[in-house]
Simulated scan of single mutants.
Amino acid sequence: MYNATRRTVTLSLLALLAACGAPKSKFKTYDGPAVTQVVINKGQRRMYLLNNQTVLKSYDIGLGNEPIGDKQFEGDGKTPEGIYFIDRFNPRSAYHLSVGISYPNEEDKAYADSFGLAPGGDIFIHGWGPEGNVKAPKMRDWTAGCIAIKDDEIEDVYAMVRGGVPVIINP
């Protein structure tokens, strides 16, 4: 009788676990219209994914901890302004997922070099991750120059954009 009860409990637990399903994957799929550009308006703290002139999605964003002005030098805490491109994807980001932006370009490098300084780099659109989950609810702009959105939102962006898509970052 003990073995029958034990077997019943074990089967019940297995059935309960199966009903709960597998953990949700952070990798979504997307089969809608292609994202042809990403537009970021720093002053409005909004990011738009567009197909030509049609807005597919829009998001509230956080910026670098010095949000006003164009990024010029490493460590200035600013988010760049200008035209860049999606150039890489990081599925193992410390910020849930991240999509790289091609900053610095040749002009950015030359400007910083004229002052004998480095332009900085590693600018991403990324999720909050553990750091952002602590900082973002308390402060709007907390990154070192990146564009931050909620973790579930970066999952959408990661699925929707492709390498080479232009990223227009306005003041």
Results as ranks from 00 to 15, higher is better:
Y2E: 13
A4K: 13
T5Q: 12
T5L: 13
T5D: 13
R6V: 08
R7A: 12
T8P: 03
V9F: 01
T10F: 12
L11Q: 15
L11G: 10
L14D: 06
A15V: 03
A15Q: 00
A15K: 02
L16I: 13
L17H: 12
L17D: 11
A18W: 15
C20F: 15
K24Y: 10
S25C: 07
S25M: 07
F27A: 10
K28E: 11
D31S: 15
D31F: 07
A34V: 05
V39M: 00
V39N: 00
N41F: 14
N41I: 14
G43C: 10
G43N: 15
G43M: 14
R45W: 03
Y48C: 07
Y48K: 08
L50F: 04
L50P: 04
N51W: 11
T54Q: 12
L56D: 03
S58P: 02
Y59G: 03
I61W: 04
L63D: 03
G64S: 11
G64P: 09
N65M: 14
P67Y: 05
G69A: 01
Q72F: 13
G75A: 03
K78E: 05
K78H: 11
T79I: 07
P80A: 07
G82Y: 00
Y84M: 11
Y84R: 11
F85L: 06
I86K: 13
D87V: 06
F89Q: 10
F89V: 12
N90S: 14
R92N: 15
S93F: 07
Y95D: 05
Y95V: 03
L97F: 12
S98G: 01
S98C: 04
G100E: 05
Y103C: 08
P104Y: 06
N105A: 10
E107G: 09
Y111A: 05
S114Q: 07
G121W: 06
G121R: 12
D122I: 09
H126M: 10
G127Q: 01
E131R: 14
E131G: 09
E131I: 13
G132F: 05
V134C: 01
A136S: 14
M139T: 14
R140G: 07
D141Q: 01
W142D: 00
W142S: 02
T143N: 10
A144L: 15
C146W: 01
I147G: 08
I147T: 09
I149N: 01
D151K: 10
I154W: 02
I154D: 03
M160A: 07
M160W: 06
G164S: 10
V165E: 00
I168P: 07
N170R: 03
N170L: 02
